[in-house]
């Protein structure tokens, strides 16, 4: 039996770092989750304004500084990107194929243009930086704090009868179950492989069919887990968001103000630079 393939299957799943949190005690860890969410929004906006090499470099510098301060290992960041390789490659190819402009070279019916390559590079960098920025938020903020922050930020929507607490709780339970379900998928894949199932061979249709014996038990187990989790939550007196208190009460501090100010300054800088054509 092909053991490396076995390990291979597991490795891909381990790359899914969604919902993972790396506890730490850096300034970035200690920032209020609301601040981090807002900074991320500002960062993403700036990323979409950035057009020129200088502005991209500025954004990259900010990201690098944040990663350095948070002490998150670069290898962890890169590992998280792996599942995205396919998306990046596909968007790059589409950009190269469909952007008109000054031809660089052409063969058969394909013409590669200068603009196409530029676009492909830009979009790839944008995706990578966007995802890494999002990782900075989820890696340094525990899911409960993250959803608590979201709940507070979305608080005004309660007036519009949006079930804010329920949405936040759903998200937090989803994030909670992801590592468990990944672990479980790993086990099921190993078990099916041990019985001789093959996941790496055949055409797309055959591969999809090979996934069925994984998905069915996974779904059944996910529902059972969700059900048991709901019971356990009830047993621990969960009764919705009314009169709930928190272990850690969120309070905006000076550092939150500074982080927000800094990110606003970067956004402003990027917009000015791009408008000046730098």
């Amino acid at each position: 039996m092909n053991c490396s393939a076995l390990r291979g299957g597991a490795a891909v799943l381990k790359d899914i770092t969604l919902g993972q949190y790396f506890p730490g005690d850096t300034v970035i860890h200690r920032l209020d989750p609301r601040t981090k969410i807002l900074v991320l929004i500002v960062y993403i906006t700036a990323l979409f304004f950035a057009e020129t090499p200088v502005t991209y470099a500025l954004m990259a510098l900010c990201l690098a500084a944040a990663i350095w301060i948070s002490r998150i290992k670069l290898s962890v960041m890169v590992r998280g990107l792996k599942p995205l390789v396919l998306v990046i490659v596909l968007t790059s190819i589409l950009n190269i194929l469909y952007t008109k402009g000054e031809p660089l070279f052409s063969f058969w019916i394909i013409t590669v243009t200068r603009e196409g390559v530029m676009n492909a590079v830009k979009i790839s960098v944008r995706i990578i930086m966007l995802v890494m920025g999002t990782f900075m938020l989820t890696y340094t903020t525990s899911p409960i704090m993250l959803t608590y922050g979201l709940e507070l930020l979305m608080g005004p929507l309660k007036k519009l009868k949006v079930p804010v607490h329920e949405l936040a709780m759903m998200m937090s339970m989803a994030l909670r179950l992801i590592p468990t379900l990944i672990e479980e998928t790993d086990k099921i894949i190993s078990a099916q492989k041990a019985r001789g199932a093959e996941f790496d061979t055949g055409n797309l249709f055959e591969k999809a069919r090979a996934m069925l014996p994984i998905l069915v038990p996974l779904f059944i187990s996910a529902f059972r887990r969700a059900d048991e989790l709901a019971t356990a939550m009830e047993a621990r007196c969960y009764h919705g968001g009314e009169n709930r208190t928190r272990l850690n009460v969120l309070k905006l501090r000076l550092r939150d103000g500074m982080a927000l100010g800094l990110s606003a300054a970067v956004l402003g800088g990027v917009i000015v630079l791009v408008n000046m054509g730098i």
Partner: peptide
């Protein structure tokens, strides 16, 4: 696994 609600012990 089906009764722990957070990814952090104290939470």
């Amino acid at each position: 696994d089906n009764q722990i609600v957070s990814n952090v012990v104290e939470e």
